[in-house]
Amino acid sequence: MTFINYASREINCKIVYYGPGLCGKTTNLQYIFDSTAPQARGKLISLATETDRTLFFDFMPLELGTVRGFKTRFHLYTVPGQVFYDASRKLILKGVDGVVFVADSQEERMDANIESLYNLEENLQSQGYDLMKIPYVLQLNKRDLNNIVPVEDLAAELKRKDEPVIEAVAATGAGVFDTLKAVAKQVLTELRKG
């Protein structure tokens, strides 16, 4: 949920990275963290298991710059992708302004993508949101691997509306900022509508 502070002239928005286990959500955030100047971002907080699986969430505040005299700050969150962490996923969606769905392009993860996308729609609904209305981007990750589904097939299966579809290799950063930009743009455009 957007928070506008007229005294400190700041705008804060919340973006959530969603998707099946191991699809690369944390890797997206890690890449943004590693390639952003320290003064533009805060710490990357990861509540993870000992094997680096997200347990509750990752969080990182990112300052994008000033628009019309207001500092624009995005709070980036990832959810835990593993199926049994559903209660946590629901909590993290509270107050969301924009969602990135990170799909795993590997053939054997197709079912996991579909299941996770349904789960997103359901959990958004339970918080009073509608996937069809919320700022939303579909990222097709792990395009560097061999056993991947063609982009057209992934899009046909996973696209829900006219959302931007962005190919990515989060591990090397390809497509990571394009994804963030695409969702941030929609969130800010939403604010224009008031």
């Binding site: 949920m1 506008i4 007229y6 509270k94 918080q127 949101y129």
Partner: peptide, 9 residues
């Protein structure tokens, strides 16, 4: 949306 934005004067 679920929550109204907070606008702080």
């Amino acid at each position: 949306m679920a929550d109204t934005p907070i606008l702080l004067r």
